[in-house]
Structures are given as C-alpha cells and as structure tokens.
C-alpha cells in the first residue's frame, strides 16, 4: 500500500471510531476543565503571577494528555485488531496515522484548555503569536512522546498508572521551555526574547519525532 494512503487510512479509522462515541475527546476535555477549575477554586480569587498561570496551564495539559491518550494502542489490543493492522500496514504507517490523530486530539485539547484558561482568569495575552507558536510546538512534542509511550505501555502486562510515570520525567524539558515561553507571551516579551525556548521546543519535537519513528518498529513487530 502507498505510504501516504496507508497513513491516511489509519488516521481516518481512528477518527471515525472516535466520532462514533466521542469517548476520548470528551474525557480529555472534561479532565482538563476539571483540573483547571479545581486549581482555580483551590487558589482563590486573588490574581496570580504570570509564572504561576503558565505553569498551571501546562501542568493541566500534560496530565490530561498522559491520562487521556493512553488508550490509542490499548484499544487495538483489546479489540483484537492489532494483527489485522500488522498484516495490512507497515509500522511507520500505523505510528504516523495514530500520531496525526493524537495531534488532532492534543491540538483540540490545547485550544480548549487555553481558551477556558484565558477566559476564566481574564488574562489578556500581549504577544498572541508567541503563545500560539509555543503551544503549537509543545503540542507536537507532547503528541509524539505520548504516542510512542502509549504503544510501549500497551505491550506491558500490568498497565495501571504506568504511562504517566514513564512519560512525565521525559516531558520535563517540554514543560520548562513551554512554561517559560508562555509566561513571556503573557507579559508581552518579543519573539526574539523567547527564541531560546522556541528553539528548544522545536528541537525537542524534532528529536523525539525522529527517535519515535525509528523505535516504533521494534515495539510493533513481534
């Protein structure tokens, strides 16, 4: 099968299954909304500094992704469709197809979480372009790392809360750079002043994507 066509087919399959019952997206959105509200109630009505605001946003997103995206490969194992996929497609098609789907999910999650966050806390972003760039690059890195580790956890016998344990330490560079770039966007720094963070996010996304595409073959083949 043509690589692009195969990848697209895997993506469309996941999207169609998701649209049938909307379990994944609803869980993610409710989780992130619940976390944000919980944090805001706990903190109280006084204004927060930009540093705390950006940290809260990123932590809510990281936890939502690490808990919500774990299903993408477990669902295949439970539904007994792994063999079918393995017979009909190459590993990289499955990985990139699933990755595209997860990126769509994380992208939607990011938009929703950021929108709710900015609305609830009444933050006016001084450099919206910088915020969009930081969140966009962060979304890619987050989706790549989560997709690979979700495939990895699907092979483990005792799953439980394994995915967050494996994922969160690996995402610390993403968290540090993303939080810092978001804070700079909130307080209105220019693009040049956030170039370190943006380059780190770009490098993280690139490095994890290359490694994940290569390593996925070893997870997928028996």
């Amino acid at each position: 099968m043509d690589w692009l066509a195969g990848t697209w087919a895997v993506f469309r399959k996941d999207l169609r299954i998701e649209l049938r019952n909307r379990y994944g997206i609803n869980t993610l959105l409710l989780f992130v909304l619940g976390t944000l509200l919980l944090v805001l109630f706990a903190v109280g009505p006084q204004p927060l500094s930009a540093r705390v605001q950006s940290a809260l946003l990123w932590i809510a997103m990281l936890f939502a992704a690490s808990l919500g995206l774990g299903r993408s490969f477990v669902a295949e194992a439970e539904g007994g469709t792994v063999l079918l996929l393995r017979l009909n497609t190459r590993p990289s098609m499955v990985f990139v197809g699933k990755l595209l789907f997860n990126m769509l999910l994380v992208g939607g999650l990011t938009l929703f979480a950021t929108g709710a966050f900015l609305f609830l806390l009444d933050i006016s972003v001084r450099t919206p372009g910088l915020l969009a760039a930081a969140l966009g690059l962060g979304t890619i890195g987050l989706a790549v790392a989560t997709t690979l580790l979700a495939a990895l956890v699907a092979r483990a016998a005792r799953r439980g809360p394994l995915l967050p344990v494996l994922l969160l330490p690996l995402l610390v560079p993403l968290l540090v750079s993303g939080t810092s770039a978001t804070r700079k966007a909130f307080v209105g720094r220019s693009w040049l002043q956030a170039q370190d963070e943006l380059l780190t996010l770009l490098g993280f996304a690139g490095a994890t994507l290359s490694a994940a595409v290569i390593l996925f073959d070893y997870l997928w083949e028996e």
């Binding site: 790392a145 990895l152 092979r155 483990a156 016998a157 394994l162 690996l170 490694a211 070893y218």
Partner: peptide, 29 residues
C-alpha cells in the same frame, strides 16, 4: 518500574530497550 511490569523476558528486553533509547534522546535537553 517498566521492567517490573513485564514478565516475558524477550518482550521485557525489547520494551525496556526502546524506553531507554527514547529517554537518551531527551537527555541532552
């Protein structure tokens, strides 16, 4: 923790190796 979660030695070795290499990629950051 990941190693302890898998019983079958060959699967365990492979999964752990993938995690180790993926972690090494993020370590320079």
């Amino acid at each position: 923790v990941l190693r302890d979660s898998i019983e079958e030695p060959d699967t365990r070795g492979r999964i752990a190796a993938v995690y180790n290499l993926f972690a090494v990629v993020t370590m320079p950051f």
